[in-house]
Design a protein around this nucleic acid. Structure first.
Lengths: 196, 196
DNA sequence: CTTTGATTTGAACGTTCGTTCAGATAAATC
DNA sequence: GATTTATCTGAACGAACGTTCAAATCAAAG
């Protein structure tokens, strides 16, 4: 027997996922052919099928991987009990994590509709888990009389939409550094929920 | 000569645009074939070319029409001088206008990348015009000492992202009526910018 | 009822799609 | 150096793609 380790798949596998992620984000799932992905990797289209059973699975794995990483990195964060501090930490975390992965964030929102129903439900559930973490912070802040929030569920959606919106215009070469943007959003979020 | 009025195009034309809008929103521009649109209209694919020179123009016309209507309806709104009242009016207007047109809003965000560069710039300019209206309200509120905003440009993007985010979860059958949602967002937006 | 021209059909075009697979290639083990 | 097997090529499959166009259809004007 031969070559049980060190085969090309260690290199090609990640390259396939990277190319697919970039192309799906730029052109959309339906507009990207397996041949385009293969060309980007430097391989023939047939070779891709050593790394994914089909195109749909490739998309799902990217979305699933993104959500898994989001929840894993978040879970590794230290727990903060003070709602005000926790909200600031969530804000900074969300902006930073998403700004680093614009392609994955983009396809996570755009290509959900291209998932088969079962896969869709799967990803949707992970997103809800993440949203629930922010909602819990808001609920705690209200219980402690620190926050003034007309509807915690809606405030959760509003804050997340606001934060994720950074990705639509942020550029590393822009007017503001990411740390400055974090600061500004922390202020706005705090003002939006704080008891006066 | 015959049939200078009342021809079928009066019926088929709008049906083509409606079908294209719905299908583009549901499945994405690239995933929707001219044959699918034709089937939805109840016509053969070739007949579509009486109503659009090509598929790309069909997408552009939908986006352009949406933005034109947004700016036109907005321009017909009475001018409000008080920044606090103007901000509330903008909030309500944005939520209501966008909630009524979820498909057009969706493709306006998702399919921008499928526009040819010239068309992209065109639509992008109209969006900036709209955003500038909110930014002007924020600037005026700051000048009058009513608002406390760390960065008006970013606050503009944040508020618009927050408001447009309603479309990702709003349903007419949901827990809250649209008027209630408007109310909640007005509160949050006001709290987020108001001088304390 | 005939004429007229807007509208639609239905077939065809060259191209590209996702996927499969027998055979070629190449690297690690013996 | 021979063997083994993961990896990749290159061709092929039927299906679907956007678009074109001659011919058929049909409703209003004369």
């Amino acid at each position: 027997m031969a070559r049980t380790q060190g085969s090309h798949s260690d290199i090609t596998g990640p390259k396939v996922r990277e190319a697919a992620l970039r192309l799906f984000a730029q052109q959309g799932y339906a507009a990207v052919s397996m041949r385009k992905i293969a060309a980007e990797v430097g391989v023939q289209a047939g070779a891709l099928y050593n790394y994914t059973p089909d195109k749909q699975s490739l998309l799902f794995d990217l979305l699933r991987g993104h959500m898994d990483e989001l929840l894993a990195v978040r879970a590794a964060q230290p727990v903060i009990n003070d709602p005000v501090a926790a909200l600031e930490e969530f804000t900074r975390f969300h902006i930073r994590f998403h700004a680093k992965r614009p392609d994955a964030v983009f396809i996570s929102y755009m290509e959900l509709r291209n998932l088969e129903p079962e896969n869709f439900i799967n990803i949707e559930g992970l997103r809800r888990d993440y949203e629930a973490q922010l909602e819990a912070i808001l609920q705690r802040g209200m219980a402690e009389g620190l926050f003034q929030i007309p509807d915690p569920r809606i405030a959760t959606m509003a804050i997340i939409a606001m934060l994720t919106g950074v990705n639509t215009w942020y550029s590393a070469e822009g007017r503001l550094k990411l740390s400055e943007i974090e600061e500004i959003y922390c202020d706005m979020v705090r003002m939006a929920v704080e008891m006066k």
